[in-house]
Computed example of a mutant assay.
Amino acid sequence: MPGEGFEQFVRMRYAELLHTAYLLTGAPAAAEDLVQSALLKIMPRFDRVAEPMPYLRRAMVNQRTSWWRALRRERLSAEPPEPAGGGGDPAGALTERSALVAELGRLPERMRAVLVLRYWEDLSEAETAAILGCSAGTVKSQASRGLARLRALLESGERSGR
């Protein structure tokens, strides 16, 4: 049975994990499932894992990749989950965020994972590479291509009035 340290960790980090999972899945229910799945994997050995966040991020990316392969690409929901603490985004920021998350869902899985880990989780290139099992050069190129693609998708959406 997990100890008090695991429970405290979950209380402190659950919202952060949920936001990352949402960006990886694009759907609130799938994000909750993804976090729960990752937490179940770490729970029996939590006391032996020196750095639980990198472990959980990698578990979420790996699980999501498995889901992508099994289910093909999913459609993202229009609304992101409520932020922790009950505060809401201003209307303009919410619209921009929804558009960004929707376009993020159109990217290939590896590119999407790189952008989520690098820019949402604010991980270094080396940390992102370690989680994804690739080189730092791959992270750099995927991030560069991904950002360019996101910009193009967002610009075309603005021009078409989406």
Results as ranks from 00 to 15, higher is better:
G3F: 09
G3P: 11
E7T: 11
V10P: 00
R11K: 12
R11P: 00
R13N: 02
Y14A: 04
E16W: 15
L17V: 10
L18A: 10
H19Y: 09
T20V: 13
Y22N: 01
L23D: 00
A31Y: 06
E32D: 09
D33H: 10
L34H: 05
Q36H: 04
I42S: 03
M43C: 07
M43V: 04
P44M: 04
R45F: 10
D47W: 11
R48G: 01
V49T: 15
P54H: 12
P54A: 08
L56M: 12
A59C: 10
A59Y: 07
M60N: 05
M60K: 07
V61M: 01
N62W: 13
N62P: 02
N62K: 14
Q63E: 15
T65F: 11
S66C: 10
R69C: 05
R69F: 06
S77P: 08
S77T: 13
S77W: 12
P81K: 06
E82A: 11
P83V: 14
P83D: 11
G86L: 15
G87F: 11
G87P: 03
G87D: 05
G88W: 11
A91M: 13
A91D: 10
A91F: 02
L94E: 11
T95V: 12
E96L: 15
S98P: 14
A102S: 13
E103T: 08
E103G: 03
E103K: 12
G105Q: 02
R106H: 09
R106V: 10
P108F: 05
R110E: 08
R112T: 03
R112G: 01
V116H: 01
V116L: 07
Y119S: 10
L123F: 04
E127Q: 15
I131N: 02
L132G: 06
C134A: 13
G137E: 15
V139L: 06
Q142R: 02
R145P: 00
G146W: 00
A148W: 06
L150Y: 03
L150M: 01
E155W: 04
S156Q: 07
G157W: 11
G157A: 15
G161L: 09
G161P: 12
R162S: 04
R162N: 03
